[in-house]
């Protein structure tokens, strides 16, 4: 079930996990995704091992409860993106 903003892509309004080619993952609500990258709203980020938590630990909490946002909005360039998936589908 999508939103009324059909021009913004199928992930618009969905909470997604953006895995990068490095140790960082982002979790946020997708606004737009283009060939240039992805714009996320209400975004948290985690680096593998940060605060003693692996990426798997971090995503396990996120899947159950969501994330505490660090950024209102953030753009991840396409070149940094390894994978984008819906957080709700990681359960």
């Amino acid at each position: 079930m999508g939103t009324f903003h059909d021009d913004k892509g199928e992930l618009h309004g969905m909470t997604v996990v953006v895995r990068t080619h490095g140790p960082r993952v982002y979790v946020g609500r997708c606004d737009t995704r283009t060939d240039e990258g992805i714009v996320l709203m209400d975004v948290d980020q985690h680096d593998d091992g940060q605060d003693g938590k692996t990426t798997a630990d971090y995503l396990d909490f996120a899947v159950k409860y969501g994330v505490f946002k660090k950024h209102d909005m953030l753009r991840v360039p396409a070149g940094e993106i390894a994978d984008v998936s819906r957080l709700g589908e990681l359960r």
Binding site: M1, G2, M14, T15, Y65, G66, R86, L87, G88, R91
Partner: peptide, 12 residues
């Protein structure tokens, strides 16, 4: 128990 938005969005 907590059901945040990502457990709602995209689901019927």
């Amino acid at each position: 128990y907590y059901m945040p938005r990502h457990m709602i969005e995209g689901r019927d």
